[in-house]
């Protein structure tokens, strides 16, 4: 198991826009550099990219919910 943490405090989104599907679903392959979500900080959207490769195990933070810097957003299985 590995964690993907939020680089900044803000609001976390699982999807590129409300109409789109989540970036990743459980079981999806994740490569280094893959976008797994967005953090909105002060009206700016920052892409959260995975720094590790693995299999997506699920989001650990709610969609459209507040997150703190360093909070775990998602987990990967090796």
């Amino acid at each position: 198991m590995a964690d993907i943490q939020s680089p900044l405090p803000g609001t976390f989104y699982h999807r590129p826009s409300p109409e789109d599907a989540p970036y990743k679903a459980t079981g999806d392959a994740v490569a280094i550099g893959d976008v797994i979500g967005l953090v909105e900080v002060m009206k700016t959207f920052i892409e959260v990219k995975s720094e590790i490769a693995g299999t997506f195990a699920g989001y650990a933070a709610d969609n459209d919910g507040p997150v703190t810097a360093g909070q775990v957003l998602a987990t990967l299985d090796d």
Binding site: T11, V41, K43
Partner: peptide, 11 residues
């Protein structure tokens, strides 16, 4: 001093 600026609004 000590105020935590929230990330939810503009900068």
């Amino acid at each position: 001093e000590g105020y935590q600026i929230p990330p939810f609004y503009d900068s």
